[in-house]
C-alpha cells in the first residue's frame, strides 16, 4: 500500500492483508474487462479487438492524471512512490519476449491466472509454462546476470530524464491514448467486417 506502509500507518501484516484484497480487485477487473479471453488479447495484434489497448491506456491515463492531482492537493507524496529501476537493454529484450508470448499464448502473466480462475484450459497450460519458464530462467541466470544488470539508470522518471514537466507527459500520453481509442475503434470496424464468425 505504497506510502501508507512506509510511513508506518499500517503494520506489515495488515499490508499483506490489503495486498490480498487489492489482488482480488485486480483479478476482478481483469476478468470483467475481458482479459481472461485469449482472443481478446491476441486480437489487439490482429486488429479485430483492441479492448486490451483501451483498458490499459485508460488505466494509465487515469492513474497518471489522478496522481498529479492528488500530489497537487497534498494528499500524496510522489517522492515516496515506488519507481521501477530502469535497465535499458534487458527491459527492451524483455518486452519483446513478452509481446511475442502474448501473441503466441494469448495471455500475459497476470491475465492467465484470471483465466485459470474461470476454468480456461489454455490458460492453465499457459500458467504451467510460466512456472517452467521461471525455473529455466533461474537456472541460467548466472550466464545472463551481466546482461540482466546492464544499462542501469536507477529509479528514474521521464521527468528526471528529460527535464520536461510531468504535466506535459501526462497531457501528451492522454492525447495519444484518446486518439488511439478512436483509431482502434475504426480499425476494429473494418477488420470485423471481414470476419464472418466472431464470438468470444
Amino acid at each position: 500500500m505504497g506510502p501508507i506502509a512506509i510511513n508506518g500507518l499500517i503494520s506489515a501484516n495488515l499490508n499483506l492483508v490489503i495486498a490480498v484484497f487489492l489482488g482480488m480487485g485486480f483479478g476482478f477487473v481483469l476478468e470483467a474487462s475481458g482479459f481472461s479471453s485469449a482472443r481478446n488479447i491476441a486480437g489487439a495484434f490482429y486488429g479485430y479487438n483492441f479492448v486490451v489497448v483501451r483498458v490499459f491506456f485508460t488505466a494509465v491515463i487515469v492513474t497518471m492524471v489522478g496522481l498529479l492531482y492528488l500530489s497537487y492537493f497534498g494528499w500524496l507524496n510522489l517522492s515516496q512512490i515506488f519507481i521501477l529501476p530502469t535497465y535499458l537493454p534487458s527491459m527492451i529484450t524483455g518486452s519483446v519476449i513478452m509481446g511475442l508470448g502474448m501473441i503466441i499464448g494469448g495471455f500475459c502473466p497476470g491475465t492467465s491466472f484470471a483465466a485459470v480462475a474461470i476454468g480456461k484450459i489454455d490458460a492453465l497450460f499457459f500458467a504451467i509454462g510460466l512456472y517452467i519458464g521461471i525455473f529455466i530462467f533461474a537456472e541460467v541466470f548466472p550466464f545472463l546476470e551481466k546482461f540482466y544488470l546492464s544499462g542501469y539508470l536507477g529509479h528514474i522518471t521521464l521527468t528526471d530524464l528529460t527535464g520536461i514537466k510531468a504535466g506535459w507527459w501526462a497531457f501528451g500520453f492522454t492525447v495519444i491514448a484518446l486518439v488511439a481509442f478512436w483509431v482502434t475503434a475504426s480499425i476494429e470496424k473494418k477488420v470485423r467486417k471481414k470476419i464472418k464468425e466472431y464470438k468470444f
Partner: peptide, 9 residues
C-alpha cells in the same frame, strides 16, 4: 536514505 515503497504490477 528514506525507504520508498516497493511494488510492481
Amino acid at each position: 536514505k528514506v525507504a520508498v515503497a516497493a511494488g510492481g504490477c
